[in-house]
Write a protein that binds this DNA or RNA. Structure first.
Length: 841
RNA sequence: GCGGAAGUGGCGGAACGGCAGACGCGCUAGCCUCAGGAGCUAGUUGGAGCAAUCCAGUGGGGGUUCAAAUCCCCCCUUCCGCACCA
């Protein structure tokens, strides 16, 4: 009996795979490709079992697809730029490059010890010039096309991280990374024009049928398209006007006042011309602060004040007051709205609070409430009343008509608004990709010529974390010459948001060593799109939306021929410990290396896959890991014990030679092949794939009880002499199938067992077992019989009986007779399954 | 408030209109024993019964169907996302 020593097997087979370069691949048009990718890692230092779960999920898919005949690309890399390394440098004095590369080395070791089948020859790290050179290259392509541009704007600012944040990086008014309350600043910033692709990014979500609906919905909401009209309200006694955006032009006859955001540009003019500009400005400032407060706390107390000015409603020609309100957003629409208190709840509350007029202009159903009786705004569409020439008309027709009339009268136009804003990518930090722009007094912002890329990040020795961009302090870096005129010029000193790095890395894996282009279009055409992509749902908006945007840009640049990078997406659940997400600060991390030392890689891999479906959150349990280890020991003993008999000559066997018990095991084997294959490839129910394998093992132990092959607990292993060839053949089919199907989950153990069974070539070259429906077909079936909906009997009958025969046998069955005695049979249904349902009364 | 997902034994979870609780953990009893955190056998939704068996049962209430954990309607709870978006 050979002892199961998983730690030794881990080492042995990991070395073998590396020596054989078993997972390195090249394009091969003769085979179908499969690109399997897990979101690459931020090199924080240590991967815990929560991170590792995702890599194991991907590895099950990659290993299975390889055995199923696909040419599988399964690469890994590092999202290596970012703030934590820089912050650590400020504290410890270690240069971010040093700590990042150290962390990568450690984490790579962790993944290798888990036996994840990565093509390590394609490893990338975004902080290396050979990678970020192409961040710059893509930036320049976008600059040429007007997709990268610079503008002064009010931006989100995190005082703790000392940098700008994208809208997507502000969570509940606070920094997504450190939780500091976000403030605003006016800065010159670089933006990517993602809004140019807003419609496409929105519409194409419908085609992503293999994405979780949740993610598509989140992106849809984030893009936030709404169709309406922009209408000009002239300011009375002035040549100025206020433009408003509305989706409810049908209610415009009920617009009894206009509301401005405190940040609206015209507010400054109003203040200057007011009787007491100082007081006016003070009040505006108070509302700006209030609006921010309200958004942070969710406290929704609507406040406003009258500017004293009036606007002319262009449909009614009526003068209505202009107020400033804390709940109107400067960044959405035009920063100004027409208020229709009768038909908008917010306007209603505001009007009631400040005693502003309310006018009903839409009637839905038979509601005839007067203004005084109204408890809340009526927001449904309906028939227009008191609306001049439009009275009596209905939505949606009237919306189109009124918008068209506004356009004809040159007082407005149809407009589509998005919640999505352009992506601000400038960061006032060091550890990132330098933006390849040079500022010249004569020529303004000039692109660094492609031949000068990469603009290398200079080695800065000291970090303070204070002041502006650290690169501004490096005079060798800053001072340069203008590429256009050769005159003195200064480099851009901001770096790019690290989400730029991750927006195209999956394309780089197709051709990671290319020095001329981000990737070779032909290689990308072979490997892309990613067939299976898995990672955390926290990237549902940021990374996944940016990646879809980048792929479209690269399509328009001519590098790829498609827009969607990820065909199938899986958002894996987190691993909790003591009910909380694992984190260093909570002190509840489980280090995979501790588990490897106790159980080996395979028990850990198996447990993490068995405990729950991949999308679900799971609670870590040491006891569950024990169970998986026991299962592997059980498999080991069985295979080891039978291997002597199974290693021998493969004698031909004809179907008629199989006994009932042998046929039953063959059925189980093939049924298991079918279930495990669809569970992995189609349903991604890795937990039930494992339980099917467990069932097969239980069945084989039962088989051992009744055949001369015996069981490990029953003395010496049989060498197969004197055992019928049919028995050996059946056992071999079951055992080999088991080992093959176990191999994605427990690759080290499976390789060793495969070798024990006498195979010279390893499992990385083996083929997945083939399901044979003829073998799986049962010759006898158990048919449940329902009487008035309850199962009352089971019939064991030959498979393939006709419905009439089944009906006959059912009614003849003693247990059935007992239940229908003295009653009238109303109906007998024979359903597929088969199953018989009898209705009596 | 809007949107999404979910609610099944002591626990993790099975069951894509057809036998509810597969598989595993835990627990109980027994066997074996070089006493190990090992292995084997049986049991384990609740209730009634010596038993065969019967009754109830998938958050609650209705409905569709020969048949519902599964489909439809209403309600409750939990988690997640968005949140004054005009």
């Amino acid at each position: 009996m050979t002892e199961y020593k998983p730690q030794q097997l881990d080492k042995k087979w990991q070395q073998r795979w590396t020596a054989d370069r078993a997972f390195e691949v090249e394009p091969d048009p003769s085979r179908p490709k499969f690109y399997c990718l897990e979101m690459f890692a931020y090199p924080s230092g240590h991967a815990h079992v929560g991170h590792v779960r995702n890599y194991i999920i991907g590895d099950i898919m990659a290993r299975t697809k390889r055995m199923r005949g696909f040419n599988v690309l399964h690469p890994f890399g590092w999202d290596a730029f970012g703030l934590p390394a820089e912050n650590a440098a400020i504290k410890s004095g270690t240069h971010p490059e040093r700590s990042t590369l150290d962390n990568i080395a450690h984490m790579k070791g962790q993944l290798q010890r888990l036996g994840i089948s990565y093509a390590w020859d394609r490893e990338i790290a975004t902080c290396l010039p050979e990678y970020y050179k192409f961040n710059q290259w893509i930036f320049l392509k976008m600059f040429e096309r007007g997709l990268a541009y610079r503008k002064r704007s009010t931006v989100n600012w995190c005082a703790s991280c000392n940098t700008v944040l994208a809208n997507e990086q502000v969570v509940d008014g606070a920094c997504w990374r450190c939780g500091t309350v976000v403030t605003t600043r006016d800065l010159e910033q670089w933006f990517f024009r993602i809004t140019a692709y807003a419609d496409e990014l929105l519409n194409d979500l419908d085609g992503l049928t293999e994405w979780p609906e949740k993610v598509a919905v989140m992106q849809r909401n984030w893009i936030g398209r709404s169709v309406g009209a922009r209408i000009t309200f002239p300011v009375a006694g002035s040549r100025q006007s206020v433009e408003i955006f509305t989706t409810r032009i049908d209610t415009i006859f009920g617009a009894t006042f206009v509301l401005l955001a405190p940040d609206h540009p015209i507010v400054g003019t109003f203040a200057a011309l007011s009787p007491d500009p100082e007081a006016f400005r003070a009040q505006v400032a108070a509302f700006r602060a209030l609006g921010r407060e309200a958004r942070l706390t969710g406290a929704i107390e609507k406040e406003g004040f009258d500017t004293g000015r009036k606007a002319v409603n262009p449909f009614t020609h009526e003068e209505v007051p202009i107020w400033i309100a804390n709940f109107v957003l400067a960044e959405y629409g035009t920063g100004a709205i027409m208020a229709v208190p009768a038909h908008d709840q917010r306007d209603f509350e505001f009007a009631r609070k400040y005693n502003l007029p309310i006018r009903i202009v839409v009637r839905a159903g038979d509601d005839e409430a007067t203004v005084d009786e109204m408890q809340e705004a009526t927001t449904n569409y309906g028939r227009l009343v008191a609306s001049g020439p439009y009275t009596g008309q209905q939505a949606p027709g009237v919306l189109t008509a009124m918008t068209a009339d506004a356009e004809a009268a040159r007082i407005g136009k149809r407009e589509v608004q998005y919640r999505l804003k352009d992506w601000g990518i400038s960061r006032q930090r060091y550890w990132g990709t330098p933006i390849p722009i040079i500022y010249c007094e004569k020529h303004g912002a000039v692109a660094v010529p492609y031949g000068h890329l990469p603009v290398e990040l200079p080695m800065v020795a000291t970090f303070t974390g204070r002041g502006d961009s650290p690169l501004a302090q490096v005079s060798d870096f800053v001072n340069t010459v203008c590429p256009t005129c050769g005159g003195p010029a200064r480099r851009e000193t901001d770096t790019m948001d690290t989400f730029v790095d991750s927006s195209w890395y999956y394309l780089r894996f197709c051709d990671p060593a290319n020095a001329a282009l981000p990737f070779d279009p032909e290689r990308a055409a072979y490997w892309m799109p990613v067939d299976f992509y898995s990672g955390g749902v926290e990237h549902a908006i940021l990374h996944l939306l940016y990646s879809r945007f980048f792929t479209r840009v690269l399509r328009d640049v001519g590098l790829v021929g498609f827009g969607e990078p990820f065909k199938r997406l899986l958002t894996q659940g987190m691993v909790l410990k003591n009910g909380a997400v694992m984190s260093k600060s909570r002190g509840n991390v489980v280090d995979p290396d501790d588990m490897l030392a106790r159980y080996g890689a395979d028990a850990l891999r198996l447990y993490v896959m068995f405990v729950a479906p991949p999308e679900k959150e799971v609670e870590w349990s040491d006891a569950g890991l024990d169970g998986s280890f026991r299962f592997l020991v059980r498999v080991w003993r069985l295979v080891d014990y039978w291997s002597g008999a199974l290693r021998g000559e493969r004698l031909p066997v004809v179907a008629a030679e199989y006994s009932d018990v042998e046929r039953a095991l063959r059925r189980k084997t093939h049924d298991t092949i079918r279930r495990v294959t669809t569970d992995i490839e189609e349903r991604m129910h890795l937990n039930t794939a494992v339980s099917s394998l467990m069932e097969l093992v239980n069945e084989m132990y039962a088989f051992g009880e009744v055949t001369p092959l015996g069981l490990p607990s029953r003395g010496d292993a049989s060498d197969g002499r004197g055992v019928r060839p049919a028995t050996i053949a059946v056992a071999r089919e079951a055992i080999e199938g088991l080992v093959l199907m176990l191999s994605p989950f427990a690759p080290h153990t499976a390789e060793e067992l495969w070798q024990m069974l006498g195979h010279q070539t390893g499992l990385t070259k083996a083929a997945w077992p083939i399901f044979d429906p003829d073998v799986a077909r049962a010759e006898e079936v158990v048919v449940p019989v329902q009487i008035n909906g309850k199962v009352r009997a089971r019939l064991t009958v030959p498979a393939g009986l006709s419905d009439d025969e089944l009906r006959e046998r059912t009614l003849a069955e003693a247990a059935v007779k007992h239940h229908i005695e003295g009653k009238t049979i109303r109906k007998v249904v024979v359903a597929k399954g088969p199953l018989v349902s009898v209705v009596v009364s």
